Amino acid sequence: MLLVSDNTAVRMCGRVVPALEINEILASLGFTHTRVEPVANPNRFFLGVTTPRETHDLLWRLANKTIVTPRSADFLLGILRWINGYHDGVRRNMSSAERSRVATKYGADFDDLGAARHEAGIMFDAAGAPTLTYAMFADSLADLDNYGATHPAVQAHAALGRVMFDTIATTTNRTAKARHSVDPFRPVSGG
């Protein structure tokens, strides 16, 4: 659900943690702009708002395992780095091995001002250390009904992703506190 549907994940989260508590947790972690939007039912909420800066901070803290337990961080990063995840944006022009070094989350929406196409994530060095964090927010865009790889903002994410990855591809982040590895993908025949 983290990769596929924010709406479904929100409904499930609301069953466990009410909106008010989520906002209190976010505030206690120092996020001043990141909030869910409560509704009449305390166990439901709208997605709310955040900023690129706070998204970047949240991801960097996740990569360094300082925002949740190391086990939870590894679980979340494993999902975000899954090679079967989102490929239209930053990871589009990468091999499977390169894609497994990128944890990414895409978000698309629209409002009265136009389309929104956002993507945020973390790139890891070859040893699994977080090396580059990105948060690209694009609002008020045209091509409202295009959720595919041909949307101009998504094409820009793909071009930027290749440049960012090439920049860190041979970098080793010796100062990183946490390392994360992804088990190699081994397809099965189903038999």
Rank of each mutant, 00 (worst) to 15 (best):
R81T: 02
V154G: 03
G89P: 01
A138N: 07
N173V: 03
F124Y: 11
A97H: 14
A138E: 05
V17C: 14
E37D: 14
A126C: 06
G107C: 12
H33Q: 15
G114N: 02
P130D: 02
L62M: 01
I79T: 01
N23K: 14
R11P: 02
Y147H: 15
V39H: 02
Y134P: 03
A135M: 05
N64G: 03
D112N: 12
P187D: 05
T104W: 07
A126M: 06
P52M: 04
H33E: 14
L3K: 13
V90A: 09
I22K: 07
S95M: 09
G114A: 04
R179T: 15
L62Y: 00
N173G: 05
I22E: 00
L58E: 00
D6C: 07
K105G: 03
A108N: 12
S28F: 12
G14C: 13
D139T: 00
V188R: 10
V182P: 01
G30N: 04
I79W: 00
T104P: 08
D6K: 11
A159S: 13
V188H: 12
L3A: 14
G148M: 05
L59T: 01
V10Q: 10
N64L: 05
V188I: 09
C13Y: 11
E37C: 13
R186H: 10
A120I: 08
